[in-house]
């Protein structure tokens, strides 16, 4: 059970953050279809940063001394770098959509094509293969916290809470949760958030009240890019052993679906992300999942093909969308380029 909760969180939290990234863009009036591409780019930048820093030997001493606080600082730094470059990458979309009034769907698709192409082109030249990995060690040995760090022995038990939320967990997941809360408050409880949301509903009215629509939309897309870039790196770090291969398996699109299903609201998004997280987790771990702790791998033993579990998240998405579509309410002005002259 604790494995299921832990793994679900590992999938659900990046999903939440990336879905919130989508909310920031859409609430400001820009459809950000490029979430997938920005995630791919952020994952690449984060892994590249980790690799470079390892090659420079900055954290080697801390790694040898098992100084896990320093290691977590390193992970935070990499997350920040990934967020920064994700933000830069998303400005391509912002420029096309805001300044040039381009078709946002096509612009987003272009970034989704660009990110894997550019990333794979560079990875092949850097690593002579299609996967870029860390220079030294692997993701668990660098970024995971383990019970031994708190003085527990190999056989000592940490209790349910300890073994679920502390042992073998990535603190990056919790950092993402905190960022999710902070950014939700920013969007819903501050003056800036109100102004940003108004630009996605009625930009003409916002403009008449002296709000700079262009600036608000730029900040919406930039925040969106930063969150998605960070989410991409956290996804790569926690589920792909800190490697980048120009692919996040449709995770960015799942985040878009979570956003729609969550009705563009943070609390609903948490619920939606947890639902998808459970199915993603089952798809990844169906063979080693012991749900009620009786030593029986039930999902494996009922003899359903692994292909079924793999297609489950996508099928569920479609079904859930079909059932919730009636109550869904998208920001009114999303996808429409702002034109001062139109009414």
């Amino acid at each position: 059970m604790s494995l299921l909760i832990q793994q679900t969180l590992i999938y659900a939290v990046p999903l939440m953050v990336v879905a919130l990234a989508g909310v920031f863009a859409e609430r400001s009036g820009i459809i950000n279809l490029a979430l997938e591409g920005i995630m791919i780019f952020g994952a690449f930048i984060g892994v590249m940063f980790v690799r470079l820093v390892q090659q420079w030997g900055w954290f080697t001493a801390a790694y040898a001394a098992k100084d896990w606080v320093a290691m977590q600082g390193f992970a935070l730094l990499a997350m920040f770098v990934a967020a920064f470059f994700g933000c830069l990458f998303s400005l391509l979309l912002a420029f096309a959509a805001i300044n040039l009034r381009a078709d946002q769907t096509i612009g987003g698709t272009a970034l989704n094509l660009l990110a894997p192409a550019l990333v794979l082109f560079l990875i092949r030249i850097i690593a002579q293969q299609n996967t870029l990995s860390m220079a030294i060690g692997d993701s668990p040995s660098w970024f995971m916290i383990k019970k031994s760090m708190f003085g527990y022995g190999r056989t000592a038990k940490m209790g349910f809470l300890g073994s679920t939320f502390v042992d073998k967990a990535y603190p990056a997941t919790y950092v993402c949760l905190i960022i999710f809360v902070v950014m939700s408050v920013l969007l819903y409880k501050t003056r800036f958030g109100l102004r940003l949301r108004s630009c996605g509903e009625n930009p003409q009215a916002s403009d008449s009240l002296g709000i700079n629509v262009m600036k608000m939309r730029y900040s919406g897309v930039a925040i969106s890019g930063a969150l998605a870039g960070m989410g991409g790196f956290v996804y790569a770090m926690t589920t792909a052993n800190c490697t980048a291969n120009g692919d996040v398996a449709g995770f960015g699109f799942l985040a878009l679906a979570v956003m729609i299903f969550g009705n563009w609201k943070p609390l609903n998004i948490v619920g939606a992300a947890l639902l998808f997280g459970v199915f993603k987790c089952i798809a990844a771990l169906y063979g080693s999942l012991d749900i009620n702790g009786d030593g029986v791998y039930w999902l494996k033993e009922i003899g359903v093909s692994p292909n079924f579990y793999r297609l489950l998240p996508y099928a569920i998405t479609l079904i859930v969308l079909a059932f919730t579509s009636k109550s869904s309410r998208a920001p009114k002005a999303e996808g429409i380029p702002y034109d001062k002259g139109s009414r």
Binding site: A102, L113, L120
Partner: peptide
């Protein structure tokens, strides 16, 4: 050469990006 085929996907992506504002 020492390069790889993914550069053509970069070109295609740039072309799609340009097409997004071909109307402009």
């Amino acid at each position: 050469t020492a390069f790889n085929e993914y550069i053509t996907n970069v070109i295609i992506a740039v072309i799609v990006y340009m097409s997004a504002f071909s109307l402009i």
